[in-house]
Amino acid sequence: MSFDPWTLGFQAVNVLVLVWLLHRFFWTPVAAMIAERQARSATLLAAAEATRAEADTALADLEAARAAIAVERDAMLAAAHKDAEAARAAILDAARDEATALHDTARAARVRAAAALKRAARQEAQGLAVTIARRLAARLDGAAIDAAFLGWLVQGIADLSAAERAALSVARLEVVSATPPDAGAQARIAAALSAALGAPVTPGFRTDPALIAGHELHSPHFSLRNSWAADLERIAAALRADPDGNAGVTSDAA
């Protein structure tokens, strides 16, 4: 066994040199690379965390926006529903009003049509009555009818007041007859008028076939209608005034 101090020194120096060389070329660079990778990883992790935080924030914003959109959509749907309800109510009201107006118009048209029909019927009845009266007057004895109407004329004069009779006695009178009176008839009429007025009168005579039958007395300011045509007109007027037809036709005719 031998122990060489030089070798001991050489080996100690060798190991120290090796420590320095490996420190310079191995341990420090590799450790630096590990540290750099760890730092880079930490940076990347921090960036990833920041990105994730931003993503979370963006997601939260998106969720909030989506919720706002949902709320807005609900509000818009509610408003649209409300508008639709209002429009529907307006349309229904308009339709109801239009239906009411149409109904009223139809009812008014129906009323007018009924009134027109009634008028037409009345006019037809009036015409029929005139025709009937004219045919009856044609079949009846003309003298008797003239006498009757003359009597009713005298009665009408008698029903006047004394002042009216006095005014008629001095007026220029005209007797309108349905048929032309002959001389005798004119004399009888004049005599009857003079007796009824209490003063002698000389009336003029005129013929109007529209009267159907009877005699009417006219002056410039007075008319005493006493004919079948006047009676029919009075009946028609009474019927117009009383559509139910309860007016006293007979008394007016008399």
Partner: peptide
């Protein structure tokens, strides 16, 4: 110069060379 010293030098050279290549 003992064999151990020479071997140590060789080991040192190998280690330093390997370290240089690695790093």
């Amino acid at each position: 110069i003992m064999p151990a010293v020479v071997t140590t030098w060789a080991i040192m050279a190998a280690l330093v060379l390997a370290a240089g290549l690695l790093t």
